[in-house]
Design a protein around this nucleic acid. Structure first.
Lengths: 114, 114
DNA sequence: CAGTATCCCTGACGATACTG
DNA sequence: CAGTATCGTCAGGGATACTG
């Protein structure tokens, strides 16, 4: 009954793929999992990202429900980004990917098993 | 010690991201997890993919060590694609992603929890 | 059958300048 | 500080024609 286990294959998988497809999405999620960050903080942590792209990727993550945006009406402006509970629920998935990635990098440098 | 658990963050994660970034990669891996397939079979299963792209994505998966390409010297030519053990080791990861994806799709259609 | 070769097109990404 | 607006670039993907 692998059919029922996996249904039509990778349908919901492709949804996830879309969410994390952005070049910086995973890095942003990772940084936010380490704690709430302000816009400028993120920009410094992801040293190569430009303002426009950071804004865009954050908006998308926000729309996808993974990231929360808290605006403080102050002068100068202050905006804090954090993971939603949904975003936090993704962290175990990210860890699984990372674990496989670690093993992958090791395996690749050793042999090329069939 | 979250530092040591996650090291530099998403380093190895980004490696995985690269591997599965191709538009058809996950679908191909999924299809091959269901059993060995010939080139034409894959093309029919991924009904919208063009020959050139299918070839390209398969070559990349092969180079990344996830897919094995078996060539039968016959006329007409016969080539079979299957998962390597490394490719099969990725299936649990794919399942994890799919599970989260399922819950994600459900959660999203219900409420937008913070 | 299983490709290769070629050309085209879009959309993601990025640099820069400006603003409430 | 945290954006928006605009323009430019480039790689991934795709259509088509051809081949061992």
């Amino acid at each position: 009954m692998t059919k029922s286990l996996y249904r039509e294959g990778s349908c919901s998988v492709l949804a996830v793929q879309k969410i994390i497809a952005g070049k910086w999405k995973l890095s942003i999620l990772w940084q936010l999992s380490q704690g709430t960050k302000r816009f400028n903080q993120l920009q410094k942590l992801l040293s190569e990202i430009s303002q426009g792209i950071l804004t865009q990727q954050l908006r998308e993550l926000e729309q996808d429900g993974l990231v929360h945006r808290e605006i403080y009406r102050e002068v100068p402006p202050k905006v804090e980004y954090s993971l939603t509970t949904l975003g936090e629920s993704f962290m175990p998935v990210l860890a699984t990917i990372r674990n496989w990635g670690d093993q992958y990098l090791n395996t690749r440098s050793e042999s090329h098993t069939i």
